[in-house]
Nucleic acid binder design. Structure first.
Lengths: 223, 223
DNA sequence: ATAATATTTTAGGCAAATCTAAATTATTAT
DNA sequence: ATAATAATTTAGATTTGCCTAAAATATTAT
């Protein structure tokens, strides 16, 4: 069943991610993500279809099969565990780890993944707040919303970031916001859509809509 | 200068290892190690020659250039650091790590290697006792001899094993011999070339020539 | 020294993954 | 409903790494 090339794995992972947010994914989108061309995607679709990894009818669309989904989750699991390792054990910043994890996620040993998971203490989330699937491919979907949608007055905890850029990290570091930080929105300004927020014990300050869009939060139950 | 494929790296590493023990390495030997054919080796020799990674004249032979040597040592460094990581942090046995490290050694990030090295405490030897090159490619060659060549009466410490097989590990575990164990040879029996030895504080026992050949030791200075 | 043997190289092809350009099918807009 | 546009697929090449079979060179044994 297994024995997939790195290339095949990358297609599977990419299709998985794209189909998470958008039901109707096409060859062009996949091609864009993989820096290749639609024609190459078609070739791979036929190949993965033959391997039962996806359901594909030409001109009509494609989606991961159950088997494909399982493979994708395995790759995501490896990627996020390695990212956790890089940040927690090797002192990388979270804006540095994606590219390295992109290579590490293709190391094949299943035993390695399980040992790594134990060594890291079975982490549930990667350094960007994204959930790490367990060894059965089960992924914990926590109810999270974008900070711009957080109602005024409610308290929430930053649970994930929507970008892995150094620029975002720089700004978050400056504003003392990290994953786990408590936030409540005090006011919204319609002129520029900026938000007045309050974190932990600090005095209130303002953030841009761009920043708010890059932050995902989970609601804290009110006392 | 860089940007080598995994395949190219494997050729470089293989040529490096073969040329360590044997000056006159040919295409057939390389092919055997890489499970390929001599003709394929020739193709790669031409390619690596063009990249200045080895000095090659057709029909006359080949050897790694200085650049090639440096690349090889970098790969060996990564391989051995990862093996150390797998054994020390993830509780693998030393007979399990080679194949996994064979994949990990091709992860490209230089920063990763240096961080890993720090995290592991700059180990000097891998779990099989082989020296880990430093970041400049310097490799510490400790004077070590085969146990069969250890003179009767002299004390020595097991410094490396000559095979990574589970069978060897099984036997060594049973006999309570590991890297670091002190050994002295008490007698040699010419009938079957077996050796009577003494380790640490135990009572003397006998080992086969096969086992002795798989053990490398460093002499301890006499008091 | 030369014949037999071994080693290495060339020639010509194959499979994977990619590309461009052209053809086919689907979607959208009028 | 059909023409224009967009998306997808096919056709035919390219590159990398590999193969087999045959040719070229080196080594060895007499």
């Amino acid at each position: 069943m297994d024995n997939l090339s790195t290339t095949e794995e990358n297609y599977i992972k990419t299709i998985y991610h794209l189909q998470q947010s958008d039901a109707n994914v096409g060859t062009n989108e996949v091609a864009a993500k993989l820096n290749t061309k639609a024609a190459s995607v078609t070739d791979m679709l036929k190949k993965l279809n033959a391997k039962q990894i996806l359901n594909y009818e030409k001109y009509k669309g494609f989606s991961l099969s159950d088997e494909g989904q399982k493979i994708a989750l395995g790759i995501v699991r490896k990627h996020r565990l390695w990212e956790f390792f890089l940040v927690e054990k090797l002192n990388f910043r979270w804006d540095e780890v994606h590219t390295i994890a992109e290579e590490l996620e293709h190391i094949s040993s299943g035993l390695l993944v399980e040992r790594l998971d134990s060594f890291l203490g079975h982490p549930k989330f990667d350094p960007h707040g994204d959930p790490i699937p367990d060894s059965n491919g089960k992924i914990e979907v926590q109810p999270q919303i974008n900070l711009v949608d957080l109602p005024i007055g409610s308290s929430a905890k930053v649970s994930a970031v929507g970008s892995q850029s150094s620029e975002l990290l720089e700004l978050l570091t400056h504003k003392n916001i990290a994953i786990g930080t408590s936030i409540s929105v005090i006011r919204k300004f319609s002129f520029d859509n900026s938000l007045e927020i309050e974190t932990n014990a600090s005095i209130p300050f303002t953030i841009s809509r761009e920043l708010a869009l890059a932050l995902f939060v989970t609601l804290l139950k009110e006392n």
